[in-house]
Simulated assay, not measured.
Amino acid sequence: MKGTSCEECAYFEYDEDEESYGCQFFFDEDDIAKASLYGDRYICPHFQYRDEYRIVRKQI
């Protein structure tokens, strides 16, 4: 299942220029239109779970 919580996504980062958190992935026009159309029901196709231990598991 694709993720929907931006706070758990790897692309959700702090922007020092804007002084706020936000998605750092560059969406195309179709994704932006779908997000505005579906609102809270939108499932992001680019969601990637933030997993700090992924590299460590590969080394074991």
Rank of each mutant, 00 (worst) to 15 (best):
P45K: 01
K34I: 03
K58S: 13
E52N: 11
H46A: 08
E8R: 10
D31Y: 06
Q48Y: 03
R57I: 04
Y11W: 15
Y49S: 04
D51P: 01
K58N: 14
E13G: 05
R41C: 02
F47D: 00
S5R: 12
Y14A: 10
Y11C: 07
M1H: 06
I55R: 14
E52V: 09
G39C: 05
F47M: 00
E29A: 14
Q59L: 11
C9S: 08
R57A: 07
F26R: 12
R41T: 05
G22T: 10
D51R: 05
Y14P: 01
C9H: 04
F27I: 01
C44D: 05
P45A: 06
P45S: 06
G22E: 10
D15C: 15
Q59I: 08
F25A: 06
Q24I: 09
D51A: 07
D30C: 02
E7N: 11
G22D: 13
V56C: 04
M1Y: 02
C6Q: 05
F27Q: 06
F27P: 01
E8F: 05
C44R: 01
S5C: 08
C44M: 09
D51E: 10
R57K: 12
Q24N: 14
K58F: 12
Y53A: 08
E7T: 14
A33H: 07
H46V: 01
A10G: 02
R50M: 10
I32R: 14
F25L: 09
Q24E: 15
F25E: 08
D30E: 15
K2V: 08
C23P: 04
D30F: 05
Q48P: 02
E16W: 12
Y21S: 07
F26S: 12
A10P: 00
E29L: 11
A33V: 09
Y38L: 12
R41K: 13
D17Q: 12
S5Y: 06
A35Y: 05
I60K: 01
R54G: 00
D28M: 04
D31L: 15
D17P: 02
D17R: 10
F25P: 03
C23D: 13
L37M: 11
D28P: 02
L37K: 12
A33D: 14
R50F: 13
Y11I: 03
E13M: 14
K58P: 01
K34A: 14
I43A: 15
Y21P: 04
Y11R: 08
S36G: 12
E29G: 04
E13L: 15
C6W: 05
Q59P: 00
R57H: 04
T4K: 13
K34Q: 15
F12T: 01
R50S: 07
G22M: 10
Y53W: 07
G3H: 00
S36R: 11
F47K: 00
I60E: 11
